[in-house]
Every structure is written in C-alpha cells, then in structure tokens.
Nucleic acid binder design. Structure first.
Length: 677
DNA sequence: CAAACAATAT
DNA sequence: AATATTGTTT
C-alpha cells in the first residue's frame, strides 16, 4: 500500500500523538534541493512506511514547519542547499520547534558531521543513504519525545536532557549537560566543599567539585525559552532555573548566564541605536534595513568579525569610490568615533524609565505614551547631545532628529512590546493588528526595523549557528559599528552630497561581491523564539523605545547568498520605485520567498553602509539624487517619506546614542571600528 | 534569610 | 571570554 493509504489507515492519528504502530506513519519532512536525491529519499522513506512530505527548498520547509509545528515528527535535510544552509535550517528547526533533525550529505567530512551535531542534528547520514539507516530514524523521534516532556520536576535526573552531569570535559553532548556528577545537587553547598581539604577526598565522583557549566546551545535554548516564557520582567534566576529544569544547574549558574545575556541584549540594543543614530546623523541616508536580526542567529558565530569587515572594505575600495572614501573619510571617521565615544551617556536613566514604562504597559497605546515619554525627557539630554555633537563635529544635530523620529514612529505604532509576535509568523495574521493595511502600519515596520536592524543585520552576516551566535553577536555589533564609521566617514568627508550619495549607492551595489565573497552566513531566517525573547529582553532591559517591529522584517531575511546577486537588479525590478516601503513590507511578510532577494540587498547595504536602517524622513534628506542612486536608495527613500512620525526633538535618539556610545566605548567596539578604516 | 544583582575573580 | 564567586542590596 502506498503511504497515502497507510496514512488513511492510521486515520486521524496523525497528529503526532498516536504512536500506536509508531514508526509507521511517522511524519517525515524531507528536504533536499536536488530533485533526484529528494525523490530517492522520498522513495526510501516511503518504503519505511513513513508519511513523507518533501520539499526542495529549505525555506519552504521552514515555512511548512512553522505553519504547523505539529505536522511533522522528524525532519531530514540535506546540508547543502542553495536557498538556505542546511545547518541554518537545522538550527532554526531545533530552536523553534524542537523536532529531531537528521542531516544528510554526501560529504562525510568529520568536521561537517561535527558541525551538524553541534548545531543540534540528532543524526547525520551520508549519502547515499541506505534504507536500513532510514528504518531506524524513528528512534530519534522517540528519544526526543521522551526527553521533551517538560515535566519539570526537578527531581529527576537522568532522563532529562539537560541534566547536568558528566565529567566536565566532555561536553559534547549536543544537549548540553552541565555538571559533573549526575547527582549533583543544585546547591553547591551541599557538596562537600569541606571534605576535600584533606586530600583525601577521594572521592566519589560525586563529590568533586562540579565542573563548570557549559552553556551549550541546548542549554542556552532552554534558558532563552524560559526567559521568554517568563517575560523579561519576571525572568530572574530562580524562575528561570525552575523552568529550565535542568538538573545540576544552580541558580547561580543561571544568574551568571543571565547577567551575560542581559549584557548581550544591551549591547545589541546599543548597537542598533547607535547605528540608527549614525544613520540619521549622517544625513539620513537610508538604508534598507531589512536585514535583520534574526534573533538567534547571531549567537555565536561570528568568529571574527574582522573578516567581514575586511571584505567589506576591500570590496569597497576596489569600487573606486571607496578608495577615496577611505582615505579622506577614514580620518574623519575616526575622529568622529572617538569623540563620540568619549561622551558620557547621560540619558540612561531616562531611557530606562521609558523602557520600563513601556514594558509595563505594553498594551497601552503607544502614541500617547510615547509622546509623553519623549516629552518627558529632560532637556538636559539635549545639552548632552549638543555637546556630543560638538565633539563629533561632523554630525549635524539636525540629522539626529531623524532618528528620533523613527523612534517615535515606532512607538506610535503601538506594536506590542514583543516584536516577536509580529515577527513570528509572517504568514500568520499580524496579531497586533497594528499593522493593518494602513500606511501607518507600513511605516511602522520599517522604522522599528531600522532600529533593530542594525543589530540584527549583523547577525545575518554571521555564520549560521543560531545559538551559537548569540555570543558572537557582540562581535557583530562590532562589525556593524565599524561599518558605520565607514559610512560616516564617507559622509563626513566633505564631499558634496550628491557625490556622497553616489558613492553610497555604489557601495550598496557593489556589495554584492562582498556578500558572495564573504561567505557570510547562511541565511537566516529568524528563529522567532529567540528573537522574541531577545527582543523583549532587549526592550525591557535596555532602554529606549525600541520598537518591536523589527521582527518581521527580520524574519524575512534570508540572505541568500546563493541566490543572488542581483541585488541591484532585483531591487530595481522587483521593487518599483513607487512602491512604497509598505508594499515592500507587505510583500515581505507575505512571502518569505521574496525576501531572499531583498535580503541580499539589505545585507549588502549593511555591509557597505553599515547600516541598513531604514530611515526616515525624506524631508531632511536634502534631496534625492534622482536617478543615479536609484535602485537602492530610491527604494529606501520612498518609504522614508511616508514615514512620518516626527518628533520634534531627538532626545531619544540622542540618549540612545549616548548610551550606545558609551557602551560601545566600554566594549571597545568603537575603537575597533575606527581602527579598521 | 534568601534572592537578585552588580562587581570582581578565575 | 565564559563562568564562578563574592559583595551589596532588597
């Protein structure tokens, strides 16, 4: 009988629950860009009596999975795929739906296998796959189910996936166990601290000091999930610990990680802000910001931010225009950066309060709040800003306003604090309603995005590894920040605006190379979960009114490196000039597919400009250079106009900026950035 | 006192 | 750089 028949027999049982005759009818999603391989795989899986669904596109797979998480029991995916790196898919799946994923590849390179496992694959099969291997894949489903049950009684130890145990070193279990002895107690106190003294502690393994916790991807995932569940506000060590329900993990461990996580979030925010500000300051260049942050994505990957930078630069310079920029601009940039860095950040308090406010009352309509909030901001900030601006002579204050505007706009949108929601499933109806058709909506997304974007975008570049990346994110930030300076310098350089623009345009365009060259990361789709959390955290933690929306844009991002290049072309062609951002955004939401191209753009933009933000008002823009800039810029610009919200003062932005700067400074990010140029 | 947090140590 | 530990506050 055919699979279909089997399915039918199983009758309703499909939903995942019935495992009556389990392996039979197991719902498998097979993904492989090679139609032949896919067909073959499909055939084999069917022979195993699994209920098979196939797709040749990773993105499609992700889409299907997102649409109905309970529709599949297991995913088997090729590693090499044009639209999305298999590892990326793996990570996203693991993160978002936590389904067992089996990687498939003709390459049996240990490193690749390892990579697959590290990214959460429950198995790695080498092509050609034998049916014998496929006959046993169901075990992964069982295993996962067993572990998953979130029964969280902390008591059990063993089966939980997370229990902390094992000798410290190993760590390889993808799942990530932490502590050394299985038994560990949560409290370190109990252990025997004292005993050892003598030297005789000999110990039972139990007794030893516990190994330090390694925050594996899985563990981090759990952590993030817990945080997300709790909401930032309530995300305190103890609660997180409870939710995580990982044996052996202590509150202290969580606290420590939380500390780091918060720092990370802040950083991200800062960066974003910074970028946004920068952009604004610069003159409002807009960049498209689609890129995004995907939430997770960035965790660790970026190992060396440097290379990206490098690549970007080089491509840049090669472009010709760049060269000039570099030289002249470089200097200016540097100055700029330096000066900015120095500035103290005052407004933090303010911003914090704002955030808090927002957090607390997410539901509250934004507009009023925002307005009030902003207004509330002390003038002092302004002063600071001024000072700042002075120091960084190049940046005109006026421009800074732009940023502010964005911010406001975002807030106005009244998006829920959690961008995630929006982001979440593009396919799904926008929840907030906020985004309705209205143009206001349209606007919103962008603006908000712009904020987030910076940061997010960086993530895109990163290599895959969602989880991995968060740690890297910082690096990303660096990268971005660096890029920024470039831009600035660019701008700053006293070139006539037009020329500048042109240059900018070039940059953006040229970047294609960059993109392709640098093997940036795999595409990113966001993983919402993380993103969400992240965002929420960020917003909460950080300051500012960041807006939530970034999410959606971000989601889309995929950068396809493979896809293409055409960035310019696509852009121009696909996106009509007239098309406003709104349309864009809509389309984006609706189809992920489109994104790919767009994403490229964004990436490029980012890379080149550093900031992809969207930007706002055109008004400030001195004018658009018409035709030349066109593709990218226009695209961007248009929307900008729509954007709207203006707020008279840019306090926020300033504040943010300052904060960001300060932070950066602390982080040394800026410095670095400056350096490269 | 326990928990959270920030700072500091390894 | 990632965790752990310590110190302070709530």
């Amino acid at each position: 009988m055919t699979v279909e028949e089997i399915r039918g027999n199983m009758s309703g049982g499909e939903r995942g629950n019935n495992y009556d005759n389990f392996p039979i009818g197991m719902r498998v999603l097979a993904v492989d860009d090679d139609p032949i391989c896919l067909k073959l795989l499909d055939g084999l899986l069917r022979k195993c009596q699994y209920q098979v669904t196939t797709t040749s596109q990773a993105r499609m797979a992700l889409k299907m999975l997102r649409e109905n998480r309970d529709r599949f029991d297991l995913v088997i995916s090729d590693v090499h795929m044009p639209d999305m790196d298999g590892f990326k898919l793996l990570e996203l799946v693991g993160l978002e739906m936590d389904l067992p994923v089996i990687m498939l590849s003709a390459n049996s390179d240990t490193k690749l296998v390892r990579k697959g496992i590290d990214h959460g694959a429950c198995d790695y099969l080498v092509k050609p796959v034998r049916i014998e291997e496929l006959r046993n894949i169901w075990q992964h489903v069982i295993r996962k189910k067993k572990v998953e049950p979130k029964s969280q009684s902390k008591s059990n130890d063993q089966d939980k996936s997370y229990q902390v145990s094992g000798e410290s070193g190993r760590g390889q279990s993808p799942t990530g166990n932490v502590y050394p002895n299985g038994k560990c107690n949560k409290k370190r106190k109990d252990e025997e601290d004292e005993n050892d003294e003598n030297g005789n502690d000999n110990e039972d393994p139990t007794t030893q000091k516990r190994a330090r916790v390694v925050w594996s991807i899985e563990l981090h995932r759990k952590f993030v999930a817990a945080v997300g569940q709790l909401g930032i506000e309530k995300a305190v060590p103890k609660r997180i610990l409870d939710l995580m329900n990982v044996d052996g993990l202590t509150r202290e461990n969580v606290a420590s990680h939380l500390q780091k996580y918060r720092l990370y979030l802040k950083r991200i925010n800062s960066v974003q802000t910074q970028q946004a500000n920068m952009v604004a300051a610069l003159g409002g260049r807009d960049y498209v910001r689609m890129g995004s942050l995907d939430g997770l994505g960035d965790f660790r990957t970026l190992g060396g931010s440097g290379r990206y930078t490098h690549a970007a630069l080089s491509s840049y310079s090669s472009g010709g225009m760049l060269g000039r920029l570099n030289s002249a601009a470089g200097l200016s940039v540097r100055n700029l950066a330096a000066s900015q860095l120095l500035q103290p950040s005052h407004g933090q308090n303010l911003s914090n309060s704002v955030n808090a406010f927002t957090k607390l009352n997410p539901s509250i309509p934004p507009a009023s709040q925002n307005a009030s909030l902003f207004q509330g901001i002390p003038a002092s900030l302004e002063l600071d800003q001024l000072q700042q601006s002075k120091s960084s002579a190049h940046i005109p204050l006026d421009e800074s306003r732009l940023l502010t505007t964005d911010v406001l706009g975002c807030s106005n949108n009244s998006l829920p604090n959690n961008p995630m929601l929006l982001q979440g499933n593009p396919q799904q109806p926008l929840t907030g309603g906020g985004f309705g058709n209205q143009h206001s909506q349209n606007i919103t997304p962008f603006s908000s995005d712009s904020f987030n974007t910076g940061v997010n975008g960086s993530s895109n570049f990163l290599e895959h590894g969602r989880c991995n990346d968060w740690q890297n994110s910082v690096q990303l930030s660096k990268f971005q920040s660096n890029s920024f300076p470039l831009t600035e310098s660019f701008i700053n350089s006293h070139l006539p605006q037009n020329s500048v623009r042109e240059a900018a345009a070039h940059l953006q365009n040229s970047p294609l190379d960059f993109t392709s060259t640098t093997s940036v990361s795999p595409p990113f789709e966001d993983s919402r979960g993380e993103i969400q959390y992240r965002q929420s955290m960020a917003s909460a933690v950080q300051s500012m009114n960041q807006t939530p929306s970034q999410a959606w844009a971000d989601n889309k991002q995929q950068y396809s490196h493979n896809s293409n290049n055409t960035f310019g072309n696509n852009l121009s062609s696909q996106v009509p000039n007239d098309g406003s951002m709104a349309s864009l955004s809509h389309s984006m939401n609706q189809n992920n597919e489109n994104f790919g191209r767009r994403m490229d753009m964004s990436l490029i933009g980012r890379s080149s400009g550093g900031s992809s933000t969207l930007v706002q008002h055109t008004e400030h823009e001195k004018l658009t250079p018409d035709s030349r800039t066109r593709s990218n810029e226009e695209y961007l610009l248009e929307p900008t106009k729509q954007q709207v919200g203006f707020s008279p003062q840019g306090y926020d932005s300033l504040d943010d900026l300052m904060t960001a700067m300060k932070r950066e400074q602390d982080g040394g990010m800026l410095d670095e950035g400056t350096i490269w140029i």
